[in-house]
Amino acid sequence: MSTLAIATAKEVFDLLHDDLRAIEREFGGDTVSSVAAITEISEYLREGGGKRIRPSLLLLSAKAQGYTGGGMIRLGAVVEMVHTATLVHDDIIDAADTRRGRPSANTTWGNAKCVLAGDWLYMQAFRVALEERSFRILDLLIGLTQQMVEGELLQMEKLGRCISEDEYNALIYRKTACLFEVSMRLGSVLAATGVDVQSNGHLHSDSASTPITSMEERMGEYGRSLGMAFQIVDDVLDLTASEEVLGKPVASDLREGKATLAVIHALENGTDAERAAIQTVLTDQDFHRVTHAEILAILGRHRSVDYAMNIAFQYADAARNALSVLPESDYKRALLWVPDFVVARDK
């Protein structure tokens, strides 16, 4: 594959196949508890699949910087455990009935057990991360967990309200992009532990030497920008895709009183009547007085979905630009491809 550009999801999967399988095994082993409910809930969530984007990013970040050790398998499982814990808590907070086309865990085991299982997953993620004996790794994971909790609380405070684009950006950074950022940074931290002592703290590429701290910053910027693009597209799909494709009810965000980027754009550019219609849905948290089709018509008149997607494309470009410090490799080419996948996906 080294003579070809990375162009498909299959090529990226083939590149990471063995490592992703190892992460799945690690995840499965790490989530076995003496309490049956924890093991059952964790296994159910793991079997739910998902794109495994976050551990894939960690693998690509580490490998693109020359890392080959086992830490990336452990930390790949860690970021997936953290992500899974957030999904459990999100479904409880949102009173969700489905997740990826299946009943959400809380509909089977109940909210109380799922809250505790989510807490256990967070703590287990930290326990596994401790095996790396790195304060920097723990610092990143602690900051990540705090940011995500803050994001949930901020979102709850703003339900039913029109928020600004800046407030929206702060929310989606905490809820989504920070985990993408930390996944990339963790790859850099692992790679930095294997730097040749003769390099005086620099990673070497064909073109130039880049300080380790700068490399971590650039990888973090890639992850942040990619995560912002990912969540904006996710929010657009929530408004425009079908329930069959999404695997959950459409327009869930509006039903929960959440104003996402396309909606914010329409609120800022619409007529008084259009703003009132959108606010009615946000306040009512249903489509009884104003229909989903009417909201889509308002968004269409103001090209609000196009506006949101253009912002996502800008973030995708910023992610690609952050990779200029990396030496050429299949792993870099895969990272360059991922933003295209993120903005082109349909679910």
Rank of each mutant, 00 (worst) to 15 (best):
D14P: 07
R320Q: 08
T193V: 11
S214W: 05
A96W: 06
L75K: 00
G49R: 05
S209A: 15
L261W: 10
I172P: 12
Q198F: 15
E167C: 07
V342Y: 11
Y168N: 09
D235V: 11
R345F: 07
I264F: 03
D166S: 08
N169K: 06
L267V: 13
L179S: 00
H302N: 00
T240G: 10
V197S: 05
D286G: 03
F27G: 02
L87K: 00
Y168C: 10
S134Q: 10
E43M: 03
R136L: 10
L144H: 04
S199A: 15
S225L: 01
D19M: 11
G48V: 01
R54P: 04
T31V: 12
K347S: 10
M215G: 01
K248Y: 12
K258V: 14
V197T: 06
L57S: 02
I232K: 10
H17W: 08
V245P: 07
A334P: 03
G48R: 01
L226T: 01
H204Q: 10
T260Y: 02
V32F: 13
N310V: 07
L15R: 03
V343E: 04
D139I: 02
C114N: 15
E167L: 13
R161H: 02
E11V: 09
V233Q: 01
E150G: 06
S209K: 11
P339F: 02
L58F: 08
E165A: 14
L226G: 03
G50Y: 05
T98P: 11
G257L: 13
L299M: 09
T145Q: 01
D196L: 10
L121I: 14
I212R: 04
V82Q: 05
W120K: 11
A276F: 11
E221I: 14
E150T: 02
N310E: 15
I137T: 10
A22R: 04
S199W: 08
N269D: 00
D340S: 14
L154F: 13
K51D: 13
L130P: 00
T193K: 07
R345W: 12
A334T: 10
G70N: 01
L87G: 04
T176N: 00
Y222C: 02
Y331A: 02
A344Y: 09
T107M: 00
L58A: 04
D91P: 00
A208H: 11
